[in-house]
């Protein structure tokens, strides 16, 4: 019984399912925060390649008002078989979420009307400012885009 209580402490990273309504509520509630939402999947090689860039930015942002969300579009049935094992193996520190939506035509457009539906893709949101980029980002591209948003805050 004790083991059950202590085991999760070794793997503090969890992966929550999230609906788009809940995601939007979160973004709206944190209005002075810049959200960087990286859409990825465990099976997507360029996504896996760019994840360390998001981890690095997240770690280096310190007390800045930045929230990095790694939003997986893996199939929901693969949460326990693929997503959680991946997150633990890679020891991801940023918050990882799994998109809990079924109708692709609805959720693609609700995330961004410019999205074709492929990953990797990244959405930057800060108040009414949005930027959606559907491609793999280098660390410099990621930081430059984030800086652009930070400057808008002034």
């Amino acid at each position: 019984m004790l083991a059950l209580f202590f085991a999760p402490a070794c793997f503090s990273q969890q992966v929550a399912l999230i609906k788009i309504d809940a995601l939007n509520n979160r973004i709206n509630a944190g209005y002075d925060t810049t959200y960087i939402i990286n859409l990825w999947a465990t099976w997507c090689a360029p996504c896996v390649e760019e994840l360390p860039n998001f981890e690095k930015l997240n770690q280096q942002s310190g007390k800045e008002k930045l929230k990095v969300l790694l939003l997986s579009v893996d199939f929901r049935s693969e949460l326990n078989s693929a997503v959680i094992p991946f997150v633990r193996k890679k020891k991801l520190q940023s918050e990882v979420l799994l998109l809990d939506e079924q109708d692709a035509q609805v959720y693609i457009n609700r995330i961004d009307s410019a999205w074709s539906g492929s990953v990797p893709a990244t959405l930057f949101i800060q108040k009414e400012n949005r930027k959606f980029i559907e491609k793999q980002l280098s660390y410099n591209e990621l930081v430059d885009t984030y800086q652009f948003f930070k400057n808008k805050e002034l």
Partner: peptide, 13 residues
């Protein structure tokens, strides 16, 4: 500088 970079990003793909 960041503005130009963003324009560059948008022009690809």
């Amino acid at each position: 500088a960041p503005l130009l970079l963003l324009a560059g990003l948008a022009a690809t793909a």
